[in-house]
Design a protein around this nucleic acid. Structure first.
Lengths: 190, 190, 190, 190
DNA sequence: CATGAATGAGCTTTCATTCAT
DNA sequence: TATGAATGAAAGCTCATTCAT
């Protein structure tokens, strides 16, 4: 099996993401994925062990790109609220502009599509945010509640806004984004 | 002549929900559904036109049961905050106790598994909540922001808590639930 | 199993003939036949042992009606040519006016749709025509050749004209019919 | 990489013809066709879009081989009667020696088994015979009647003789064939 | 006599994967 | 490395027939 980041490998991952996004896992056969990537079905198995492996790898790479984006320009030395706003806006930016990736992650996180193992690996990237929240709680700036709640009320809502926007029911402008941030912050600040 | 018992129909819908929840749409074949429901594969087609139709119907019925639950004991004559808390707690109760149904809805809402038409039909039940919010905004109790935001920051987070709980990562007690409600209310109250 | 000529039995045979004619045997399921006859699928089995039996019976009855028609107004006492013309015109009349029945017989006679046994039974009706030919041959009016040839060149061509007419490629008027009879007679007369 | 051998395609068409001839379209399932051709059921779909497409293609190829045979050693420069006899004997030879192909064509032409489009395409090959007849009519050798009649009384009877022979009811020797030709010619000559 | 419900067997077709080059 | 051909297994669905009333 080949090493990362050949052009074909990337084309295959992109094709997989597109087909799963548009048709769902159950209607994204290997033959179509190969065709969309401009490659023979047999070639897929030079890069991936099987379909599940390909989807797992895709998940992890998208998750990694998401995490990287989330902490752009952030440093743990920032004051709590400033640091939080930077991360939040990074994430919002990703969810609302890289809609395809965000929608794919949302599918993965809400279905039994991904192996439990890969799911766990995908979680580790979030640590800096958890650290920030802990600091905020020590400093008496953020409510002393479970990080699950903090995540549920600040980051997770962005997934809903992304989905709404994708369904063309709703378009987010800057004012709305500011309202959204206020809501997020208000829900967790002390 | 035998009569078409709605028992079989219900058994089929339950089997479908279980299999899709555990394995995903793509790994819930009609043969397994039939076996789990205790009928012949052919019998499915006496009750549903095809697989998609069965899933659509299941979605709409679960959605309806969810909505019914959401507005239990609620009346539009309640004060805004009290009314909101009742609805919110109803929904929390459903999501955290009828986990299977809630998880199924979450899968449906985050994948292309359901027909767009059924999806639209599923939305209409929410109207009383939208009305409540509108009243709250007129009365200067709730922030004058889009209902998409209000939903994203008060109801949608419960889906995350449900998923977390289902993955056995986290158990919600009453204190946490109260924290959750505070976070929800803080995010939208003026 | 019921006796002949109940209304339902006849409706079933008619429905069968129509569906097989329009769609072919392979696309004429019992359920459709029942629906078209206005009857429950189970009812079919009160009148016929199974599908094959129903088709066999249909074949034999249509064949009988055809034969009856063929010898209308004919008597063995007629002179050879007159007798032959009467029979020939009777058959032509049937093939060109009872197109559905004729087309059905044509399907049966050119496919393995019918049991060999029923096929044999269907042949016996033709005897008077064979007798007529034999007389004609004894009298030196008709060529001394096998009755298979006589049939092939006088009666069988009408099946082609029937099919052509059914396909709307061609319409037979009286002049043409007379030409057709001349061709038939010329081919076998001495 | 293996190359798509036309051997498999041909084996599939032959298997289809055999099974349809012996059992009828409705009793020639893809699984049996595959087995008889020595390939997997899935392989069929590398060569044909679906069952109907396979049967259509088979029809057209058999029809083409028939037509080629029909005009062997024929040239439009031949005198009318000689030319006609050559074609007629070619066709007789085909029908009586390539019985399987002939019987298959007969099934196709007398049932709704074939798409109307393919049926039309199958007709174009006959043109040289039509031209010959037209010439014969201009020269006052052949009766001035519709080509449908000419076909019905000269070519079509051979289908009956073929079917009779196939049912082992009758064997054609050379004398009989000469009688048959006489009958054909007598029916249309002026 | 008649029914609509119910079904096991089997249908056509597709799938993830492997083969042979 | 890369391929298109090939496939066994299984998918969704339909069918002729039987069941239970």
């Amino acid at each position: 099996m080949r090493v990362k980041s050949s052009e074909k490998r990337i084309a295959l991952l992109e094709a997989t993401l597109n087909l799963i996004n548009n048709n769902g896992f159950h209607a994204a056969p290997m033959s179509k994925i190969a065709k969309l990537a401009g490659v023979s079905p047999a070639t897929i198995y030079l890069y991936f062990a099987n379909k599940q492996d390909m989807v797992n790898q895709l998940y992890l790479e998208v998750k990694a790109s998401f995490s990287e984006h989330a902490f752009k320009n952030y440093s743990p030395s920032f004051p709590v609220k400033e640091g939080f706003e930077i991360i939040w806006r990074n994430i919002a930016d990703y969810k609302l502009h890289q809609v395809e990736e965000a929608y794919f992650l949302s599918q993965c996180d809400n279905t039994p599509m991904i192996d439990e193992e890969s799911r766990q690996i995908g979680l580790i990237h979030l640590q800096p945010l958890l650290n920030l929240w802990e600091r905020g709680q020590k400093d008496g700036i953020i409510k002393p509640i479970s990080p699950y709640l903090l995540y549920a009320y600040t980051i997770y809502p962005l997934a809903f806004l992304m989905t709404s926007q994708k369904s063309a029911h709703y378009q987010l402008d800057n004012t709305t984004l500011t309202h959204a941030f206020s809501a997020a912050w208000d829900s967790i600040k002390l």
